[in-house]
Nucleic acid binder design. Structure first.
Lengths: 160, 160
DNA sequence: TTCATTTGGTTTTAATTTGCAACCAATATA
DNA sequence: TATATTGGTTGCAAATTAAAACCAAATGAA
């Protein structure tokens, strides 16, 4: 899976890692606690060569680490790094959208609950620095320090 | 792009729509206000046949609508439906992760700011029903009403 | 009014990626 | 000691994607 998007864009950057049919499922597995190659393969149904390739990508990106767990040699555990754990909000957002809009209310396959109360989480929503919820209109997308000229131009014409 | 994941899982369900290299970029375009076929194609660099196919998927899923905008006939605008707009938190979560972990602090291509204050948004984070932030350990994943037997089994063994 | 250009595609072909099965060496288990 | 499991790799066929050519209708410019 070569990097395909060359635009300077955060979404494009994410797609260069996660823009395929499997990688988010591997992240799900990691958050569910699956660490072994064979375990992940069984749980997802991914082909071994593709799994091998995707794990390499995730390890190279610093999202997973491969730890030795056999006495010496050929048993490994794949675990989330801190960078990997930082994907949790994204995974939750995907999860909530899937529950709500793919399966629908009353048909959710996997609920997300607060452990202490058993009540469902709130839908993830953007908040300002002082903690209040923001609507789409209250959010501005502005070129940042890493913006290319194309990005600046693009955002300018998006304002119309 | 045939549906490939048959597991009863919200993440798998999302991947059956968004599990490719382009679809999130099309959603980005929609949120930036691009509505025309040619406009989206120019902004992303996607091949026309693939764009045609992906737009059909998004329209069939009820995420975009195709509106007639030529006097009568062959000019169209693709716009987000309410279901499409509900993807906003997911897109923001991807955006924030891309800024932080693909480009890094001080190198963000596109900032997300509160329009009123110019301050950056908070990172999206899970919150309980009464509004406090939750850690990963405080969240429980439990089989919901739509869970299959495989899902129940899977979640049970994830508890170990 | 005429001609060139734009729009929103479809079709064809080539390159790339995926899925599947076979294979393998090292290790663990019975 | 024999068998199964682990974590892959390799090779091939099938499916998907990219790139380019092509097209009819509609628009815009002179």
């Amino acid at each position: 899976m070569a990097k395909r998007h060359t635009h300077t864009c955060p979404i494009a950057g994410v797609l260069n890692i996660f823009g395929d049919n499997w990688t988010w499922l591997l992240i799900r597995e990691a958050f569910y606690g699956a660490t072994r190659f064979s375990e992940i393969q069984r749980n997802t149904g991914i082909a071994k060569n593709v799994l091998s390739d995707r794990l390499d990508v995730l390890v190279n990106e610093g999202i997973l680490v491969r730890e030795d767990v056999g006495e010496n040699g050929t048993r490994y555990a794949y675990r989330l790094t801190a960078k990997g754990e930082s994907l949790h909000p994204v995974l939750l957002a995907l999860h909530q959208w899937g529950n709500e809009h793919v399966y629908g209310p009353g048909n959710e396959p996997v609920l997300l609950l607060e452990r202490a109360t058993g009540k469902p989480l709130q839908p993830l929503a953007p908040t300002s620095r002082d903690g209040h919820r923001l609507t789409r209109a209250e959010i501005e997308t502005r070129p940042g320090p890493g913006a290319s000229k194309a990005t600046v131009r693009r955002l300018a014409e998006a304002q119309e």
